[in-house]
Design a protein around this nucleic acid. Structure first.
Lengths: 116, 116
DNA sequence: TATAATACCTAAGTTCCTTATACATAAGAA
DNA sequence: TTCTTATGTATAAGGAACTTAGGTATTATA
C-alpha cells in the first residue's frame, strides 16, 4: 500500500501566467485553451497546473488588449478557440521574458548573494 | 541635460515578499522593518523597493503565525522592532527557499525548454 | 450507464500587493 | 528658523491575479 502526498499545486507567482501563455504562443503559432493547460502540465511534469478559472479570463484579457487574435474552429463537433500572437503580442512576449529574467536575477541576488 | 526614465519599481511577484524577509532574517539574526527595506534596496541595487504598506502587515502576519519573535528597542529616542526567526520560522525559511528554487526551475522549463 | 476526457465559461472569494495617509523624532538645508 | 529629508512605525482603501466552485456540452471509456 502506497500513500502519496503531493505538494499542493505549487502556487503560481503573480504575473507568471501571462508570461507562460505568451511564451507558449510564441513557440507554437496557435493554441487553444485546453491545449495550453495540457502543454504546461507536460512541460513541467505535472508540477504546474493551470486552472481554467485563471486561464480563460487571462486569454480574454490578452485578447482585449490586442495581444492575441482568436479564431474559432469546430473539431469533432466540439468548439475550439485558437489564439495566436498579434504583432504587439510578440513585442510584449519579449518584454515579459526580459522581466522574468530580471526577476530571477534579482531574487538570486537576494537569496544567494554569494553567486551574484 | 539628462532625462532619466526609470523602469517602474519592478513588481514583486506574488509570494516573494515572505521568502525575502525570512531569508534576510536567516542571515542576519535580527533585523527591524526599516532596515529590511534598506537592505533589499542595497542588495538589488535599487531595483526592488519594499514598500511599508507591504512590509509591516507581512511582518505582523509572520509573527502571528509564530514564525517570528519581536523585541522592541529604543534607539535615539526612536522606536525599533527587531524581528528574529523562531524555530519554526527557520524551518519555514528552508521550505520557502526550496519552493522558490522549484519555481525558478519550473519557469525555466517553460520559458527555456532547451536548457532543461 | 456512469465516469473521465475534451472544451468552453463565469462568479465569488482570497491573497498579496500598491497607493495613500498618518504619527513621531532627528538631522540637514534654506 | 523653518522646511525638507531621513529614520521609524502603522493602517486603510483599492486593485490585480489568483483559487475554488460551480455551470454547459460532446465524445470516449470502463
Amino acid at each position: 500500500m502506497y500513500i502519496c502526498i503531493v505538494m499542493s499545486n505549487s502556487k503560481l507567482y503573480k504575473g507568471s501566467l501571462n508570461t507562460i501563455i505568451l511564451k507558449l504562443l510564441n513557440e507554437n503559432d496557435k493554441m487553444y485553451g485546453y491545449e495550453i493547460t495540457q502543454r504546461v502540465k507536460e512541460l513541467t511534469k505535472g508540477e504546474l497546473k493551470i486552472t481554467e478559472g485563471a486561464l480563460y479570463p487571462a486569454l480574454h484579457k490578452l485578447e482585449a488588449e490586442g495581444l492575441l487574435d482568436v479564431e474559432v474552429a469546430k473539431v469533432d463537433n466540439r468548439l475550439r478557440k485558437y489564439y495566436k500572437l498579434t504583432e504587439s503580442g510578440t513585442k510584449e512576449t519579449v518584454s515579459k521574458l526580459e522581466e522574468l529574467a530580471e526577476y530571477i536575477k534579482t531574487m538570486q541576488a537576494l537569496v544567494n548573494p554569494k553567486l551574484a
